[in-house]
Structures are given as C-alpha cells and as structure tokens.
C-alpha cells in the first residue's frame, strides 16, 4: 500500500496542536508555535548530541560515581563497581535495576539512535517501522537513566555521619548526567518521520531514474 505523506501532500503539521498547515505558513495560527515540515537539522543535531553523549559516557563509566568516606577509609566506586557489589551481596534485584538504568539504558539508547541515523543515511526504508518501534522504546525509557543520579543524590544527603561515614558525589556523576541529558535531547531532536521519508526518497529516486531512462 502506498501512503500519502505530508511531504507529498505539500502540507506541514504543527507538532504542538496538530493542525495541518500549508507549506507557506511559518507560524501556527492556532497555537502560535513555529511550524516546520520536519524538525530542522534533526539529523545533524541528533548526531552531534549522540556523539557528545558517547563522549560523556567514557568518564561516566571510568570515574567514581560516589565516594564513601568512613573511619575505615575511603572507597570510591564506579557505576559497574556498584552493580557488582550488589550482585555479589545477594541483592541481585537492585543490581539488575542499577545495571539496566545506568549501563544498559544509555548504551541501548545511543545504539538505537545511531542505528536510526544510519538507517536514514542508508535509505533503508523497509526498516522504518521497526526503527519507529525502537524509537518509541528509547523515548520511553530515556528518563530512567537518571535513576542512579537520584540515588547518589539521596545517599549523599542521607549518609552524613561526620567522621563515621559520609558519602560524597564523585566526578562521574556529572559526566553521567550530561550523557543522559544529551541522549534525551538527541531523542527529542530526532524526527522519526525521517525514517519513513526514506521510502519517499527511494520512490522519487526511482521515478527520477525512470524518467532519466525514458529521457535516455
């Protein structure tokens, strides 16, 4: 089945109030927001944010997330140390939650984003629906990466026993947070419609080449 998209119809959708406008409109007359047919520079911005997120993930995983200072000494641990600690201490549930939120989710999000961007670049139109499903998943789970940040914040706030034990935030927390924020922005700036536009492009290309052929 051949779907008619807004591009073919020469229309553009206001993403805020979902009013369909002709292309000539730049500002939605209903809700007053700017109207674009596609999110401007979606691909470039998504790329840059994704790359930034990847960069931030490096210190986020290498540096200590929080530092426990106690009379028994100082113990700084990375995210993975925390996961391993819980797995070893019979708290597998918590271990898995932290692993999922702090390690799996960010990596999964970035992998998916890169996959989607590649799909667009390679015009893989047949992957569009699958890509959209993945996009919906990463959009939904995105904010859960913040879990560990909140946990660190709470622990720091609660464990303040002067000399006996205190917990302070480690440098990885900020990197990790930036990585999460970057991925969230990247997801926001990614326009899933571009996945389906590949089909249109292909079709256009085909038509053009057909036309070219006829010309020839």
């Amino acid at each position: 089945m051949q779907w008619i998209t807004d591009i073919e119809a020469g229309k553009q959708l206001c993403l805020h109030c979902r009013k369909l406008h002709p292309l000539s409109v730049h500002r939605c007359d209903r809700c007053g927001s700017e109207v674009h047919q596609r999110i401007p520079h979606s691909i470039a911005i998504t790329w840059s944010l994704a790359i930034a997120a990847i960069i931030f993930l490096i210190p986020a995983n290498l540096l200590p997330m929080m530092v426990v200072k106690s009379i028994a000494g100082e113990d700084a641990g990375t995210i993975m140390d925390g996961v391993i600690y819980f797995l070893e201490h019979g708290e597998a549930g918590i271990g898995i939650v932290i692993f999922a939120a702090s390690i799996f989710v960010p990596f999964f999000k970035l992998t998916v984003l890169l996959y989607l961007l590649l799909n667009i670049h390679l015009n893989r139109s047949h992957r569009a629906k699958f890509g959209l499903k993945l996009y919906r998943i990463i959009h939904f789970i995105g904010k859960w990466s913040m879990l560990d940040i909140f946990v660190v914040a709470l622990m720091v706030g609660l464990v303040q026993f002067k000399n006996l034990a205190t917990i302070v935030t480690g440098p990885a927390a900020i990197a990790f947070m930036l990585a999460v924020v970057m991925t969230m922005f990247a997801t926001e700036h990614f326009d899933p419609r571009l996945l389906f536009d590949t089909e249109l492009k292909k079709r256009k290309h085909k038509n053009e080449s057909n036309e070219g052929n006829t010309h020839v």
Partner: peptide, 24 residues
Amino acid sequence: GTLWLVWIIPLVALLMAGWLIYKH
C-alpha cells in the same frame, strides 16, 4: 551556519569529559 554550530556540542562534550578525567 546552524549546522556548523551544532558540532560545537560534541566538541564541548569532549572538552568537558577530558577535563573531568584530567581533573580526577
């Protein structure tokens, strides 16, 4: 212009991440 500016983000990220690691 905008496109070019967009690439400042990963650059800044690189600087920040590097700085974090260095500082640590």
